[in-house]
């Protein structure tokens, strides 16, 4: 468990910033992102659309809250939950042998593979450090 406050603030800024960025590039082109989701061949047309509209804003709001230090643990919980979901999704995609753009960072997306999982695991580590950081004493 990391106790260093400066390090935790840095983690919040990095992770929050990454999520805001990832959310903004997706929110700019929700239909393109919907196609990305559809490529995973897990959900149908309508759910792809709904997820493509909502998910970027979940990333943006959770990222903003985390970076700003508002509801730190709650936003870290949302982000960690999303990361666990992305990791499982990527694993399933690899096992199914699908060649799919991960859709992670808009134009900077790449194939959903081991690299993406490692990246997500790195971010999950930051998220869990924030989520499980010792509570500050009230006095």
């Amino acid at each position: 468990m990391i106790k260093n406050k400066t390090l935790l603030v840095l983690f919040r800024l990095v992770l929050g910033g990454l999520f805001v960025y990832a959310g903004v590039v997706k929110a700019l082109d929700p239909l393109d992102f919907a196609q990305n989701i559809r490529n995973y061949d897990i959900v149908g047309q309508s759910l792809s659309f709904i997820a493509a509209v909502v998910l970027p804003w979940l990333e943006i709001l959770a990222g903003l809250a985390l970076a700003a230090g508002v509801w730190k643990r709650a936003s870290a919980l949302v982000i960690s939950g999303l990361l666990v979901f992305f990791i499982v999704l990527t694993l399933v995609t690899i096992v199914r042998g699908l060649d799919v753009d991960c859709g992670c960072f808009g134009a900077f997306g790449r194939e959903a593979g081991l690299g993406v999982i490692l990246e997500d695991l790195g971010m999950l580590y930051l998220g869990l450090c924030i989520l499980l950081a010792p509570k500050k004493r009230s006095r």
Partner: peptide, 19 residues
């Protein structure tokens, strides 16, 4: 924490629908 996380979720749906 769970309640706040759910609030973030609900807010995301509302903002997404508005934008």
């Amino acid at each position: 924490i769970i309640r706040q996380a759910l609030t973030i979720g609900v807010l995301s749906v509302l903002v997404a629908a508005a934008v």
